[in-house]
Design a protein around this nucleic acid. Structure first.
Length: 272
DNA sequence: TTCCAGGCGTATC
DNA sequence: GATACGCATGGA
């Protein structure tokens, strides 16, 4: 990854990145394509920091991060987009496995975003037995209600009734339970981060509405535990068809990143 | 109308 | 521990 500062924008070059692959593959729910722009452009957030980002031409690997300081780029967005990780090297490792090799070729621009932990907890509770457009709708209404994505502190004492305008259905009572466990101190992000992946997985599942899959998503997308491997209905089919004896050795330690390529590939390519 | 969506809680065995 | 079943909502 290389970048330059130009007229208050960051111009960035990164071969292993595309906006559609990374921002619209179901790992994050607060990025929206901006339809009127000349270039492929998305607007979204990390916590309360907004960003508009363009891709000058698909597969060219040139991006414009509009109107942000070099300081914000280095302090916030560099980490958020995981630019410190060499995805070319990861894909070389994954190419040892034929299915993964195809998956990486299908969506070459996927990266694992380093998202906020609390936002991921709420978002993936809302994701269960739900579809991506509707998840985005519910989260959009949540952000409207609170003037931005609420952290656990802002959600302290919230009830399912108060969340009714979100139209989250049966998931509203899970948000209530989760906010309660954070406000009474039985859970905190700081303590979760000190735990091993297996221990944090168990701790997250004490929340009503967080089961094995949602907890894995929180670990992977919200805590950058790259060994977390969420198994949803799609990945279950992949495991049964291609990996009945377990995952290949080449994904060891980065199972979750491999999962992103597999998930996107089998869900949208039509092979299954 | 019926089915399904990045699952999970509950009841039952 | 394994296996059914219901669940809010809305789009196909």
């Amino acid at each position: 990854m290389d970048y330059t500062v130009k007229n208050g924008d960051i111009i960035l070059s990164e071969e292993h990145f595309s906006l559609d692959d990374t921002l619209d593959c179901g790992q994050a729910f607060r990025w929206e394509a901006v339809p009127s722009e000349h270039y492929r452009t998305y607007m979204g957030f990390f916590k309360d920091k907004a960003l508009t980002i363009s891709e000058t031409e698909r597969d060219k690997g040139i991006f414009i991060l509009h109107g942000i300081s070099e300081r914000d780029f280095l302090d916030v967005w560099y980490d958020y987009f995981d630019f410190g990780t060499d995805y070319g090297e990861l894909k070389r490792r994954f190419s040892e496995d034929s299915v993964l090799s195809d998956a990486c070729g299908y969506a070459k621009g996927i990266r694992l975003l380093k998202q906020d932990t609390e936002e991921c907890i709420i978002s993936f509770i809302l994701s269960q037995n739900n579809n991506i457009p509707r998840i985005k709708g519910i989260i959009g209404r949540l952000c409207d209600m609170y003037g931005g994505f609420p952290d656990m502190k802002r959600l302290e004492g919230v009830t399912a009734e108060e969340l009714a305008p979100l139209r989250a259905g049966f998931r509203a009572k899970y948000i209530e339970d989760c906010a309660g466990k954070f406000s009474d101190g039985s859970l905190s992000v700081d303590s979760l981060k000190k735990l091993s992946t297996a221990e944090a997985h168990k701790a997250l599942m004490t929340v009503k509405g967080i089961g094995p899959k949602v907890a894995m998503c929180v670990l992977l997308f919200g805590m950058y535990r790259t060994d977390a491997y969420p198994v949803d209905v799609w990945i279950k089919r992949v495991n049964e068809k291609y990996y009945p004896n377990g995952l290949p050795e080449c994904v060891k330690g980065v199972e979750g990143i491999a999962q992103q390529y597999l998930f996107h590939y089998i869900r949208t390519s039509g092979i299954m």
